[in-house]
Design a protein around this nucleic acid. Structure first.
Lengths: 346, 346
DNA sequence: CTGTTAGCGCTTTCAT
DNA sequence: ATGAAAGCGCTAACAG
């Protein structure tokens, strides 16, 4: 009695072997019990060599592949999967994180599910729910700008969560962050040292943790240097480099416009660079995040750099500690940034 | 009788509610049977409103989350997961693909597992095995340079496979490819039209499908233009931009060196650009793949462009057709490329 | 060393 | 409209 072939066999041909053989099929072909098959598959000791060979032969003949879903159903078994919830893999910042996470996941023999939220809290909530229902062993999240208290309370017990890049408010979880204020300070100080007094700030969503921190760093640094903060030099809420470009162009077109601009993140910096290149003026640019190819630019730019994969690796390491049962109080790790000059001076 | 709390409750506190409640727990709290709970969870008809409310309350009280692993165990049920096997997410080419795939996956309410192979066939084989054992519904693969016949024969029956960017030899599967020869031809013709006669080719692994195709396009175009192919102008087998840079530097340092260089892929182009910038000579560069920020470069570069996310979207669309039972003969879709000039002429 | 059996958490006939 | 019971594919006591 063979298992019924689930789904039509290829081209409707009726096959004598099950389309997706189970351990029972293997056991039958090998003439042993499922237990023995299980033992062979999982390399338990206590299997006679000749038996093992029969089983191996049956496995090969049938093309059997163990069903890990069924396996993980047993209590105590894990799914050997972790998940990374980000805004957009196509952004090098996030793909860098993903890369770092995957390295650590691989070392721990886990698979990685990646989900894009596109900045939508609803999508994030939905995604995390799906992930938890699939019983991933752990969650790595770059949270959207919302209150994560209830979300974390609901889902945190199903899988450990580690936050990346943004600290969720009021949630007792591990987080790996960048030195947003410090990095911004260095960049602004650099611009001030270069003689600039009117420094624009071009940024994304200021309600996102990083945006708020960086803006705070900007204001703080201006103040410490005795410069006044000008509202009209600050342009926020941009989501694309195109929007940033427009905004900078507008800023530059005004009387009393900036002589330098600091950009909040990689996309903002790209937009700013385009705007400055087009406007042709001698405006200095600084920005958060590194940019590939920045060193070959026709203009100079000061960049607040760090390795995104470090964020991912560190967070994943923290997560696996939790997965292994670490119950110490939540930790917050801050990754240092470094200001570097890229591109060629004019 | 409550389910035992699996794993220690937080801080060892003994909880009256199960740490990870099951449907049975919900049923007990709601005072109904598991069947009814299942019906509510899955929005079956035939549930009295008052019953549904009791169940909803119990679900909320316990923080129940359905176990989709157990659910998928039933015959005919899918895991609602597809996988993407690539070389390295941190490379914008692959992250672009991943982005496109995720879009389509989301539309089809599937989750995406991403695996990095680092170009290792062993790792690829292992990864695909793990994926199949987890019973993903479909596989998207950028294959490494090896014979995939047996791999596909072994695993193809467990989940439909669609190949991206590289056509595996002798495997009857869908594939989405780039117009490698055509794209390369355009680039080389451009360089020839600019007066170049000694055009270097700097490339990655020539045994990888794309490498072979692009090299063939290069030779073919030279021949058609009546130019002779010079072995010493061709440097292959580079995996990083640093290696490409070195190689181009070496090429440029030689007597009778190239007056232009064509680079095989994005990393090769980055290396070539660095080398040319350093050497200061007036060497023209062309390359396969687009480069972010290329338009702000201090030198000009001709790029063979296309949208990586299109590759991903198209492949994922094909895959979902298969998942839905499409049994038409395998298809091969070729994505067109476009030659664009980036950067500023000196 | 090997087999029997009892579930894991869920869906799904089949009764009621 | 609801429940009892079988079983998805696997592992883990427990016997032998």
């Amino acid at each position: 009695m063979w298992s019924e072939a689930r789904g039509a066999g290829w081209a409707g041909r009726e096959e004598r072997v099950a389309a997706r053989p189970t351990m029972h099929d293997v056991a039958r072909v090998a003439g042993v019990s499922v237990t023995t098959v299980s033992r062979c598959i999982n390399n338990d000791r206590y299997v006679r060599d000749s038996t093992r060979q029969k089983v191996d032969a049956a496995v090969a003949e049938l093309g059997f592949q163990r069903n890990d879903m069924a396996r993980a159903l047993r209590p105590g078994q894990a799914t050997a999967t972790i998940a990374l919830v980000i805004e957009d893999v196509a952004n090098p910042f996030y793909s860098g994180i993903a890369r770092g996470v995957d390295e650590v996941a691989q070392q721990n023999r886990h698979l990685l599910v990646v989900g894009n939220t596109e900045l939508s809290f609803d999508r994030e909530r939905e995604l995390l729910g799906e992930l938890v229902r699939r019983r991933v062993d752990g969650l790595l999240v770059v949270p959207t700008a919302h209150d994560h208290r209830s979300l974390h309370a609901d889902l945190g017990r199903w899988a450990p969560m580690v936050f990346i890049d943004r600290a969720p408010t009021g949630v007792p979880a591990d987080a790996v962050l960048l030195d947003n204020r410090g990095g911004t300070r260095q960049a602004i100080e650099h611009l001030i040292a270069a003689g600039h007094r009117r420094i624009a700030y071009i940024g994304g969503d200021p309600s996102v943790y990083t945006g708020a921190q960086r803006l705070a760093g900007y204001r703080q640094t201006l103040r410490k240097a005795g410069l006044t903060y000008h509202d009209e030099l600050v342009s926020l809420g941009h989501h694309t480099d195109a929007a940033a470009r427009e905004a900078v162009l507008a800023l530059l077109g005004r009387r009393g416009g900036p002589t330098a601009v600091f950009a909040d993140n990689n996309r903002m910096t790209i937009g700013a660079l385009h705007a400055v290149a087009e406007s042709g003026g001698k405006v200095d640019v600084a920005g958060f995040d590194d940019l590939e190819l920045a060193d070959l630019l026709s203009m100079q730019v000061a960049l607040v750099t760090y390795r995104p994969d470090d964020l991912g690796r560190t967070a994943a390491t923290l997560l696996f500690d939790r997965i292994r049962g670490d119950t110490r109080p939540p930790r917050r790790i801050v990754i240092k940034t470094e200001l570097v000059m890229r591109g060629r001076p004019r």
